[in-house]
Structure formats: structure tokens, C-alpha cells
Design a protein around this nucleic acid. Structure first.
Lengths: 117, 117
DNA sequence: TCGTAATTACGAAGAGCGTCGTACAATGGG
DNA sequence: CCCATTGTACGACGCTCTTCGTAATTACGA
């Protein structure tokens, strides 16, 4: 109802509010791990529509929200799109090296299983 | 029914059967993370009764099983007790450095939050 | 053999998760 | 102004999870 154009704000946990258990849980889902892996290799933030997951848009929205609310990613509106990016700095400050190891482990497992990522 | 004394066998996933998502999920529960943290600082394998968790024994058994079936720990009977130990070699071979980072992150978070582990 | 300590099995309650479908909202372009 | 694009809200379904209580199992020791 406010007159501002892009007032759509998204709730993010502050760095202090991020919990290890929440991050691990967020990463323990195959779809979300896939999202995070694609996001990690990207230089810039990506729109949700960039990710082509074998689930509906509703489900995709749900997974993005879980990732955001756990502190793994940051989301911001830009026009009709919503840009997503890893919160690398926050995660590395809280859990040094953790994300890198998870990404590396995911890549190794993908190779090992012959699947992709 | 067999005449052997300690035939009680426990099903463990082979190294190849361990999945990253399963490991992350297993570690995403506070109780299980607590168990793994205590196990990590121990030199030898520990009995279930060593761990004093704020849940009942039934629940503790459940968590140990989740950890075993995800490949995080190994369990073996010895008398009336059941000894538990981290599968460090398997985990490090599959996901190099991952467990160490998780343990380190858990310790950092415990310090940060003033809780313990 | 009997008792005790350690752990499991089973069933159940309650909550949460992943998924979907449909209807809705916001933005930008013609 | 209308429409296409992008993403959300809501309700629902089935499944899994965490937790418990109680009964049962196993092994050791007296």
C-alpha cells in the first residue's frame, strides 16, 4: 500500500543469527544443494528463472526461501526478477572453509556417481 | 539362534554408499551434532551410555542409528555396550576436510553463543 | 541361574518437509 | 492500458522426522 515502487523487502537473518544446523539442513536437500552449486560457479547474482530444476515454480520458491532464511543466500528484487547470491563473506566469517568443502564434496560426489551438477 | 556369542551385526553403508546429502542431514540435528562433537574429541570409541543427552534413551538410540546409516559413525557391540566411533577415514576420503570444518564451525558457534558442546 | 545394566524394538503422537496446483501480485514493455 | 514475465501465497497431500513410553533383548557377573 505504500507509494514506493520497490519496497518489497525480503527478511534475511543477520550474520549473528545464522546457525550451523540451519545451514547444514538447508544444504542437505538435493535441490537446494544443486541451486547452491550453480550459484557458486556464477560470477554475479542469478535470477530464480536461471535455475531449471525438475520441480515446479512453487517448490523452487520454497527452496529459495529456505536458503535465504537459513542465511545461505541473499535475495534482492530487481524489476520482475529476484537476484540470488551466496552469502560467502558471512558464511566464511562464521564457518571458515565450510562452504568450500561442501561444494568440493558435492563436485567429487557428482563425479563419483556419474551424475551432474 | 546361532551359537556364536557376539553375532549381533549392525548394518553399515559401504564407503561408496555414503551420500553427502545424508551426511549433511545427519549433522543438521543438534543432538546428533553434539554426539559427533563429543566423539571427535575422544581418542577411542565410546559407549552410548557415555553420552548424556537431554532426551530419552530411545531417542538417543534413534539418533545413533541415523548417524550410522548415513555413514557418519561406525558401531560395534562389545558385551552389553555398543561402541561408537567416527568414520573419519571414509569421510575424509569421500569429502576431504568436510568433517573437520563442520567440527570447527560447531566449536566456533558454541563459543559465539556461549553454549557448550 | 538369577539379576542387573545396556540397548533395542515397537507403536504412537505431533510437527515439519517437499511437492504440487491454482490463484494472485508486481514489474516493465508495447 | 494491456499483457507477458516473474515470482508469491495459500491450501493440501503424503511422507519423514523427532520424541516418547513400555516391553523385550543381550551380555556379563555373582
Amino acid at each position: 500500500m505504500t507509494t514506493a515502487t520497490s519496497t518489497r523487502e525480503l527478511a534475511h537473518p543477520t550474520r549473528d543469527e545464522i546457525r550451523l544446523e540451519g545451514v547444514l539442513h538447508a544444504l542437505s536437500d538435493p535441490m537446494r544443494l544443486l541451486i547452491v552449486r550453480e550459484m557458486a560457479v556464477a560470477e554475479a547474482d542469478l535470477a530464480c528463472s536461471y535455475f531449471t530444476l525438475p520441480v515446479t515454480k512453487s517448490t523452487t520458491t520454497h527452496h529459495f526461501r529456505v536458503l535465504r532464511e537459513s542465511g545461505v543466500i541473499r535475495q534482492a528484487y530487481r524489476g520482475t526478477a529476484k537476484l540470488n547470491g551466496l552469502r560467502r563473506e558471512d558464511l566464511d566469517a562464521l564457518f571458515p572453509g565450510l562452504i568450500e568443502r561442501v561444494l568440493e564434496a558435492a563436485a567429487l560426489e557428482a563425479d563419483r556417481l556419474g551424475t551432474d551438477g
